[in-house]
Design a protein around this nucleic acid. Structure first.
Lengths: 191, 191
DNA sequence: TCCGTAGGATGACCATCATCATCCTACGGA
DNA sequence: TCCGTAGGATGATGATGGTCATCCTACGGA
């Protein structure tokens, strides 16, 4: 073989990671085949040696995005010893950092409305990722019983997603930070 | 002239209304020139007799969408005599009706992430629409001073937008209604 | 009656994009 | 040394979509 073993897997992972950023930064069809391959230093033609079709890449890059953000949030929650884990998650999620760098943040804040419109086959897979995300966050949520935690999850994440989306529409950092702060205060005093 | 006076204005309005539904239902590039003109019973060629370019239509259809939803919400608020107006708004916004018919609902729930990515020129115009929307809703918000009402606006609308987006990703009506109910209860007991 | 014109239709152009057939190349095994 | 092949490159194809030049048509005014 021309390349050492494992090389293809590495390239594959690089493509997926790049695509997961692109898709979060520019939307579902910001991750065109040519653009994604260029990011990886390749040309568009080799794409189909790695993926059956574009949807396959889309699904993998979404999975990567969910894995990425849920990992980051879980880490923030676990490293917080002075306050409840859910508060650490709220503070991390509603930071200017994630607001201004969509490509590192939660895919729901950039893609939720678009994900509703993909074809049914893939919507099932995406739904599974969402359930996964929720299950990964539930242990950190406030409340005693699982039902309480689940209610908290939906309330908290709804607010955070909406707040980030509104903030991103505002032209000045100070305005964005203000909206984020309002949502943070609202949530932190609500449970 | 071939048509009675006012005919062109009527057709123009019809195109804009159709586009405002299409854009909410299928995203910014679901409102292609050909599709929008077909909706109006015309062919794609006549488009440029009505609009300078596609962005002009986009802007007009967004304006129409904001006008549409803020009118509906204001009406709901004003017709509510047994409860505070903001509660009527929350119940209307978080109804299965608007959840399942994106084309009649708030453009932010379908378009917010996409609007962040349009070119800078138009982003300014869109920001103005957002401010307009807020100013139209502020009088109905809970709180004494304007600052309180503004904080309430951002908290309430963040939660509502996020809740609708999450609900729309769920495959079954019962699941969607559950998420909407959670967000409703959360908001209605928060102010 | 007939001409000018507004509103719309036809058709073409160009760009972008997903997809894929085909070609190229350099390494490992024989 | 040399051949088979995996990984990637080139380039073509068809679809879609925005844009616009040009054509068509029927009404109002003279």
């Amino acid at each position: 073989m021309r390349y050492r073993p494992g090389h293809k897997a590495e390239v594959h992972q690089k493509i997926v990671k790049d695509a997961s950023c692109r898709v979060r930064a520019e939307g579902l069809n910001g991750a065109g085949v040519a653009a994604v391959m260029r990011d990886a230093g390749l040309t568009h033609g080799g794409f189909y040696k790695h993926f059956g079709n574009k949807d396959a890449l889309l699904l993998e890059s979404l999975r990567e995005a969910f894995r990425d953000i849920s990992g980051k949030l879980a880490r923030a929650a676990e490293q917080s010893h002075t306050e409840p884990p859910w508060k650490a998650i709220v503070k991390a999620y509603l930071s200017l950092e994630y607001c201004d760098h969509a490509d590192r943040g939660c895919p729901l804040t950039t893609l939720a409305p678009e994900l509703v419109r993909v074809d049914k086959r893939m919507r099932g897979q995406i739904f599974a990722e969402l359930v996964n995300y929720k299950d990964r966050m539930i242990p950190f949520m406030p409340g005693q019983q699982t039902a309480d935690k689940e209610r908290a999850f939906f309330s908290i994440f709804s607010t955070m997603i909406g707040a980030i989306e509104i903030a991103r529409m505002l032209p000045e950092p100070a305005m964005r930070e203000k909206v984020l702060a309002i949502a943070r205060d609202f949530l932190l005093h609500s449970f």
